[in-house]
Design a protein around this nucleic acid. Structure first.
Lengths: 329, 329
DNA sequence: TTGTATGCGTTATCAG
DNA sequence: CTGATAACGCATACAA
């Protein structure tokens, strides 16, 4: 392997000089800069990232903490986009990334988890899908030991930023569009998990809509389960004007139930997953660009690395109707 | 961070002794072993993986080379299972993993790619979905510079193993089951990409079936595209007894086309993706356990690391009918 | 069986 | 502006 030492020797300068050139240190003459770059090019030298993170005290390695939903595999689509969006941006920013599934750190104490991340030279973490029940992870955030960006959760402090779309507004809009188009007077709202932050925000949007428009709102907890949504629809949809779901998967479950019941009710979902296009009927939904959300999270983490202080980042969303013709290719 | 030095001091032994205990070296007294482990536990020490790979010359870091299909996002399901299966097993085997999307190394020369991997201290690579057109990657395999496991490709040499199900047999079986159940005399076979190894194997299975059963076989190239499969079905399915597709996605496209044409033909797919359950009609398909395939690949790579020589590993598959009731949850 | 010393490829701190 | 040199945390050949 061609190392920095080879480059130094070849260019006739010291190792430290090469390092300075490569890391854009201020005090290097244009002359030596050019000389070094020329050799770097010629030898095809690529700095060893492992050695760099070991040596450097400045941040670099990022962990993606993903909650892999083992049961509902259709949701993979979202995680995959999170991961690929983050990795792409990380490469652009020259950050090293490791993917960690939550099951790997499950049951660890705060200390164990801290050591686990530290042992991998991880200095920044992006957390996807945090729920209120994740006690240890909350402690990890509070500890301030790592720079952290949470996606779809409200934590913000010195070392922690939050990135997400405006769920409340999005839920309001998609439901409003749906009931307006269909002139509905009442809604069955199938919400997500109780301890999810997005659940709370989306529910708030629904309540605001109900108040604004003076319509009756029945809220049931579907736990993001397609089956639960199906059953709730069977039980409660009959005398409601529309079924609004807090996720696409639940919307699909609701839709299939309605078809079986042989009644029509407008249904809308949330997320804009591709799967929506396969179920045969069109639905309104909120489209989040997951890859972009994740890329923004990485950018935000990089900002924290560079001394920035935690903040809340709100990303745009769009309303769409998913249909088969749009997604086939 | 608690380091090996802290453990050594606390246990009253030398750093090297701690290292030996942790790495299961033979010549350590049971007494010091226990002493060290006790301290390790108490301090919650986790060895720094970065320092370890830098120091050690023996292999450790593994790259997952994933071809992310940007257009057909439903396929994410497969990649996600590949990734999670590999990462899980890697943790079990104490291997560090980095995920690399093919787009990141696209256009690199052999030398650049070698340097790229080397710069990350990568010594082993698992390659998913290699096609004949990936010239540089083929050279990388031939170079012998890295231990490599290819999933669904036939390369085997000193440092390279191959892992996959028996695609030929699987294709034979699923098609045979389908035509037997429906007493078909002719088949429209929609194959995959021309330069894919699996395409070749599956096609071979079909040809053998056609010969064995004396049925007419029309082969068309669907390029794993749902849309292509749809169009081919519209054009050629009418006077064929069945439509056999080399992927589930194409099977879905074919099925939707048939419904639009308002004719019935049995359709079968390949892969057993969850999406199959959502399209409304049941189909025969081959179920591969992608996570398991990937885990096996990781195991195989570990074997190569430990001095094993490359070999071909064939994993089992099953025939299934995917229906909505089975996948909803 | 245990400890010492050196190196892995960088970065960072000081002298010069 | 440039160059020695000491870390970073661990593995390992070698000495004791």
């Amino acid at each position: 392997m061609v190392s920095i030492k080879d480059v130094a020797k070849e260019a006739g300068v010291a190792i430290s000089t090469v390092s300075k050139v490569l890391n854009n240190y201020p005090n290097v003459s244009a002359d030596t800069k050019k000389k070094v770059y020329e050799v770097v090019d010629r030898l095809g030298f690529v700095p060893n990232a492992v050695a760099a993170t070991l040596s450097s005290k400045k941040a670099g390695r990022v962990a993606l903490l993903v909650k892999l939903n083992i049961k509902t595999q259709a949701i993979d689509e979202i995680d995959m986009q999170y991961i690929s969006g983050a990795i792409r941006k990380a490469q652009e920013l020259q950050l090293d990334v490791v993917t960690i599934f939550e099951s790997m750190v499950d049951g660890m104490s705060l200390e164990e988890m801290t050591n686990y991340f530290a042992s991998q030279s991880i200095s920044g973490i992006i957390i996807y899908g945090l729920t209120k029940g994740d006690k240890v992870i909350h402690k990890l955030i509070d500890s301030g030991r790592f720079k952290i960006v949470v996606v779809d959760a409200p934590m913000v402090n010195e070392n922690t930023s939050s990135v997400s779309i405006d769920h409340e507004k999005a839920q309001y809009e998609v439901a409003n569009k749906t009931i307006t188009e269909n002139k509905c007077k009442s809604i069955l709202y199938i919400a997500g998990m109780n301890d999810g932050y997005v659940t709370e925000w989306r529910l708030k949007g629904m309540r605001r809509l109900a108040e604004d428009k003076g319509i009756k709102l029945l809220v049931k907890n579907g736990e993001f389960s397609e089956l639960k949504a199906r059953n709730l629809t069977m039980k409660y949809a009959k005398n409601k004007g529309a079924v609004v779901c807090a996720s696409d998967l639940m919307a699909i479950g609701a839709m299939k139930a309605l078809i079986e019941m042989d009644i029509f009710r407008p249904v809308c979902g949330f997320d804009g997953i591709i799967l929506m296009g396969y179920v045969g009927k069109q639905m309104n939904t909120v489209r989040q660009d997951f890859a972009n959300v994740s890329a923004s999270a990485m950018e935000e983490l990089n900002r924290l690395f560079n001394g920035g202080v935690g903040q809340q980042v709100v990303l745009p969303h769009t309303l769409v109707r998913m249909k088969y013709e749009d997604i086939i290719c």
